Computed example of a mutant assay.
Amino acid sequence: MYIETPRLIIRNMKLNDLEDSYEHRGSASVSKFISEPLTFEQTKERLDQAVKPWQGNEHEKLGLAIELKSQGKLIGELMYKHTNIGSNIGEVGYRLNTNYQKKGYAYEAVSALITHLFEQLDLHKITAVCITKNNASWGLMERLGMKREALYRDHFKVVDKWFDGYSYALLVKEFELIMKRSDEKTA
């Protein structure tokens, strides 16, 4: 997969992304709502899996790099998986290096991915989940036009603590309305 935005390139992961990937996967602040920070070896194992060809099977993760064009640097990662192929439903996920947060990169990357998924994979619905305390994550989902669908009690275990989670979703008809409004603003 290859998607280009004004500032970013979204592409398949490469083995030489290891150092940049570890920079955020090994970070306690980036990982605090996802898992324990990964070791260098664990990051390498994840990358080895991510570079394998994606078959598009249900629940098989597609890992994608978020590359900052101006630096040629991987600044974060995106994830996509089909969660219900028969109903054309998928899930997105994202993580961003702390040094590149609060600059609009996450919105730019996830928005471009969602557009690509709806236009190329004929999806009916795209979902995303996060821990309720992760205000930045669910705030991003809302800026993307996603609607909160559920509260999951004690749903995510991070290290040794349980956390509640939110589920958000965007339907294709909502996406099309957002795109229409965007086109009208630029016309």
Rank of each mutant, 00 (worst) to 15 (best):
D20Y: 15
G165T: 03
N12L: 11
H155M: 03
L38R: 09
K185Q: 12
S111D: 00
I85P: 00
I9E: 08
E176I: 06
I10L: 05
G56L: 10
E45T: 08
R153N: 06
T83I: 15
A109I: 04
M141T: 01
T132L: 07
K157A: 05
V110F: 03
H124M: 07
Y2E: 12
E108T: 04
R148S: 05
G76Y: 08
G139T: 08
K147G: 04
G26E: 06
D183I: 01
I89C: 08
L64W: 02
L38P: 03
L151S: 02
Q101V: 06
G56P: 11
T98E: 15
L62N: 06
N97C: 11
K125G: 01
E149M: 14
Y100S: 05
L113E: 00
G63P: 07
A65V: 07
L96Q: 05
E142T: 14
H24D: 06
G139A: 08
L68E: 11
L96F: 10
I66F: 07
W162M: 12
S29I: 07
N57S: 09
L64S: 08
L151V: 13
T132H: 05
T39F: 04
L170H: 02
T186Y: 09
K102S: 14
P6M: 06
S167M: 14
R95P: 00
L74G: 09
N99L: 14
E23L: 06
M1W: 01
G93R: 13
N12V: 03
T98R: 15
A28Q: 08
D164I: 04
K73A: 13
D183N: 09
P6T: 10
E23Q: 11
N135G: 06
A169R: 10
I131M: 14
Q101W: 10
K103M: 15
I34G: 00
L144H: 07
S31G: 02
S70P: 05
H24R: 11
E58I: 04
E60C: 11
M1E: 00
W54G: 11
L121P: 00
I126K: 02
